[in-house]
Structures are given as C-alpha cells and as structure tokens.
Amino acid sequence: MSRANVRTPVKMHRNVTLIRTSEPMIAEELLARKALARLVLARLSDTVLLVKPDEADAAVEELRKMGHTPRVAR
C-alpha cells in the first residue's frame, strides 16, 4: 500500500468550545480574569484555552466586558 493511501489513526473531538488567542500574553490576560478563568477548563497550549461546554455565550460576554471583540465561530 502506498504511503498516500495510508489513513492516519486519529481521535476526533467534536463540538469543542475553545478560545484561541493570537499571542500567549493575551491568554495569560484572559486567565487572570477570575470570571473568565472559571469558564476555562484547561489550557491546551500557549494560545488555546478549553472552555466548559455550554459556556460559549458567557465566555463571549466576559471577553466583551474585558474590552475584546472576539471573532465568534459557531
């Protein structure tokens, strides 16, 4: 079987709520905000935060309160 035809085994995580920032510093800033940190379950990387399911609206609201204008991809 040629390499091009080999399927890579993966695990799919669907309908995940995430916040992605352009800079690690912004992620730090978000985590320093208690009300937002409460909605964050984990930091997957320097710039990606895992948000609790069903808390997307609350997270957007909190981001806006912080003065951010996040792009919202639903």
Binding site: V10, R20, I26
Partner: peptide
C-alpha cells in the same frame, strides 16, 4: 486587527493524533 486577537470557537473540531510527527505530516 484587534478582533483577530481572540477567537471563540463554539463548536470546533480537534483532531487528535498519536504523535506530534503524525500531526505535523498530516
């Protein structure tokens, strides 16, 4: 420009690979 600083994904898909090398190749 500022809007691009933060993106909230309400229903994103994360594809998890076994290793970093597999992920990078894909």
């Amino acid at each position: 420009d500022r809007r691009e600083q933060v993106t909230l994904y309400g229903a994103a898909t994360l594809v998890e690979f076994n290793t970093r090398e597999e992920r990078d190749r894909a």
